[in-house]
Design a binder for these strands. Sequence first.
DNA 1: ACCCAAAGTGTCAGTGACTGCCAATTGTCG
DNA 2: CGACAATTGGCAGTCACTGACACTTTGGGT
Lengths: 217, 217
Amino acid sequence: MVGMSAPTDQGGLRARKKQRTRAALIDAGLDLFLANGYEATNVDEIAAAVEVSSRTFFRYFASKEDIALAKGAEFDELLLDALASRPAEEPPLTALRHAVLGMLREAATDSGVQRFLSTQHLITRTPALLAGNLRRAVGTEGRLTAEIACRQGVDPDRDMRPRVLVAAVCGALRIGLEATCADPSRELGRMVELVEQAVDLATAGIPQHWGDDPHRW
Amino acid sequence: MVGMSAPTDQGGLRARKKQRTRAALIDAGLDLFLANGYEATNVDEIAAAVEVSSRTFFRYFASKEDIALAKGAEFDELLLDALASRPAEEPPLTALRHAVLGMLREAATDSGVQRFLSTQHLITRTPALLAGNLRRAVGTEGRLTAEIACRQGVDPDRDMRPRVLVAAVCGALRIGLEATCADPSRELGRMVELVEQAVDLATAGIPQHWGDDPHRW
DNA sequence: ACCCAAAGTGTCAGTGACTGCCAATTGTCG
DNA sequence: CGACAATTGGCAGTCACTGACACTTTGGGT
């Protein structure tokens, strides 16, 4: 009778199977993309590799490109979480810097990062994926901006500072990651180093503390 | 017999007709997009409005989205030109700043800017267009970076400074333009003002002059 | 004025991403 | 077990986009 018995969310066999199928689709898709290229891989092949119909593929993912962008989306969630768990009194740039670098350092211990970097490299070489990835990144920028603006108690629609700060840091992150992918060694320590340097360059002159004046435009 | 008689490039009737068709397709396409939305407009309708087959449409544009992004591409060319014509001895940030603001001020006198802003607004509201537009913008960033790096005599693959600088300015430009589109009045003076403020915020601490040390990473 | 090669266009068939619909299957829970 | 809901597969259809081929137009040389 319980009107809203969150139908099947976590423990059920059904839910676990769904998660497994989802992960298998991403895995198979990335394998094929990395082996044969994104355009040369069609959805039927990915679905067949997991023994699912292509119709089912589209019940798990809204588009083929979502497979290629899935890992990046996970990383962005980690970044959001990292920022959210920074102490509230920390000034915005410091919080962002620590969130980005802390997340990267943690990610560097994960065995899946190499795969992530390979995928990122594929993305930068594939126009359709590059476009989709940038859109996803901008979406994340928006959420980071909301968090920063909220912390500082400013309205991001009237005060451009949160947007500009987040854009600077995210741009630097993007450049650092691209440089890492371009480097054939793809050493993880270097990844953190490159991103840190890019962030420092981009934010050298942005004040740590913001005054309380609304800074209206 | 002149072997290479640059077939038909500029003056010919043929070339002018092509230019007219191209412009008409962009115009009709934007009208339809702005009236009915991007997704709801299909290529056949645009082609029909210009009395051309849809096959011909794709001889003029590689994709439907190119219509929506065409104006932005023109603006980017103007920006490139503006940067190229800055004096060579000007420090990089100054040159970029003047190129962006000068271009915007000039554009503000053009009667087509309002249309451009409407289109930009549509782009930000349409995920597929947003993605394509960001990719285009990143392409332009690459060309700006090449120009800046060349002026400074550094290799952009080894020194991230040109990339970071250009990303900061372009990010600010994007934020300023978005703010302009969001403002219902869309006053052109305000456009320049907003972009100028965003650029200043983003680049406040980036040094005007770069030392001659290669700044290797 | 005439002709020819090049450029431009339309038609048609085909691919591939993606969606709506319906019927069959399969967990879930009482 | 037996109802019920979620999941799935197959199928038909839309739409962006492409290759191939035949037809028309145009520009330039004679």
